[in-house]
């Protein structure tokens, strides 16, 4: 990759924004919140974050907000990630590596199917099987 200038970055951002407006996103955003405390980072939260970004890029998603947060108190299952999708219960996933991140994007975010093996904190049993 050649060194990008700020002007090039601005152009890329503007063309990206133009694309988004054409697609008429309804303002309904998906939130991905990655736990990046010391425990998360030690367990590979950076790889998970990169995995999410790569999957978002590969699938051309554009109404996703990605945030980092501190430790969520589930250090035994780091990296942990909270996923909020409109119309679905908020879910905390544990042991999320880059491959699981990809799975979360492709199943949970794109097809509203939870990634069962990695759910740490789930709503009542009658909501999910």
């Amino acid at each position: 990759m050649a060194k990008m200038t700020l002007e090039e970055l601005r152009k890329l951002r503007n063309s990206q924004k133009g694309e988004m407006e054409r697609r008429d996103v309804e303002g309904k955003e998906t939130h991905i919140i990655v736990g990046m405390g010391t425990c998360g980072i030690a367990a590979g939260a950076k790889d998970a974050l990169d995995g999410f970004l790569d999957a978002i890029k590969a699938n051309d998603l554009n109404d996703v907000v990605v945030k980092q947060t501190g430790c969520m108190g589930l250090c035994y299952s780091e990296p942990t990630v909270e996923v909020k999708v409109p119309g679905m219960p908020d879910i905390i996933y544990g042991n999320v590596n880059a491959a699981v991140a990809k799975e979360i994007v492709e199943k949970h975010i794109m097809h509203k199917q939870m990634v069962q093996d990695h759910i740490q904190d789930k709503p009542a049993g009658d909501i999910i099987k």
Binding site: R13, Q16, K57, L61, N62, V64, V65, V66
Partner: peptide, 12 residues
């Protein structure tokens, strides 16, 4: 935090 911006920031 908007994923498009974060992707470009990472590339940059």
């Amino acid at each position: 935090n908007e994923s498009g911006a974060m992707l470009l920031l990472r590339d940059y």
